[in-house]
Write a protein that binds this DNA or RNA. Structure first.
Lengths: 156, 156
DNA sequence: TACGGTGAGTTTGAATTTCCTACTCACCGG
DNA sequence: CCGGTGAGTAGGAAATTCAAACTCACCGTA
């Protein structure tokens, strides 16, 4: 999934090169839920075992997961999210919200995340500076590196 | 990329089944930037033309993109994001922010998005109800459908 | 001590996708 | 007429994925 051909330096592409392969983000979902054992992951994600092993290695190497023994004799391991891995959780929340809104009719949500404020979590992406919700019309792309051309009027 | 084996109903998995294939989110990046023409996409993304054609068909079918003629005689088309497609832009912003933070050293960001408030956009995922930034410790998973087991103490 | 079971993978060969290059088709401009 | 552009399609080689079986280490129990 490395992108040797992508002519543009881009943090979206770089991030996807790490977590954009099939199953990778579902692995993150599971470890964030606390289901970090190999066979749990196989069952819950439905991925072939060999592919899962490959993904796990990659995520550990990238520093998104840590492989921790949870019992010596017999050695057993559990995958847990690192700080960096946890920082991708908002992406998962946002994807889930999008799917709930666009892929499901009405209130048949398979999972609700409860926030500490007591409400069901409805994630909103906001601007740290002003606090407003991020909307397409409010964004303007400012390329900082060569390789970018932005044709649209408002861009982002 | 359909997930016939995934034993869990999950909006994250469903959303990724739609936009999780290689290049799909980069296509969305480009169309959000206004670069919606086929050859632009090929150049900017670095995808093989046939794969790109497949992805575009899929995204149009899913209602994330619209294929609009921008000139008759010779017929030429441009892909533009629909409302639903634009609603995935926050996901892109969040992925970009993560990549900027974890995959790059210091200030070599390839792209800065300027928000209408005048500041460089730093996207933060917040809870719509209370406005607080979403943090892992504040989340609890409440499965609504069968097929879910959540082992972790705090989950999400 | 043998027997079946679990966790965590690895191996193997077939099925699927991707990749790359070339090709098409419609048109335009000189 | 000639070369060039936009938007794809075609063909075969290369890389990935898949499913099922296999390994290895260990545990509980009978």
């Amino acid at each position: 999934m490395a992108a040797p051909k992508d002519p543009r330096p881009c943090s979206i592409a770089d991030t996807l090169a790490l977590v954009g392969e099939k199953y990778s983000l579902l692995v993150l979902r599971e470890v964030c839920l606390g289901n970090g054992r190999f066979d749990q992951l196989v069952r819950n994600i439905g991925a072939p075992r060999d592919i899962l092993a490959t993904r796990l290695r990659r995520l550990v190497d990238a520093g998104l997961l840590a492989r921790q023994p949870y019992c010596e004799r017999p050695q057993r391991f559990e995958y847990r999210p690192t700080r960096a891995g946890l920082e991708l959780e908002p992406v998962l929340m946002t994807l889930m919200a999008w799917g709930d809104r666009h892929l499901r009719t009405d209130g048949d949500r398979p999972m609700i995340i409860e926030h500490s404020c007591g409400q069901a979590l409805a994630p909103v992406v906001t601007c740290r500076a002003c606090g407003d919700e991020v909307r397409h019309e409010d964004l303007t792309a400012r390329p900082q590196a060569p390789g970018w051309t932005v044709t649209g009027p408002t861009a982002a």
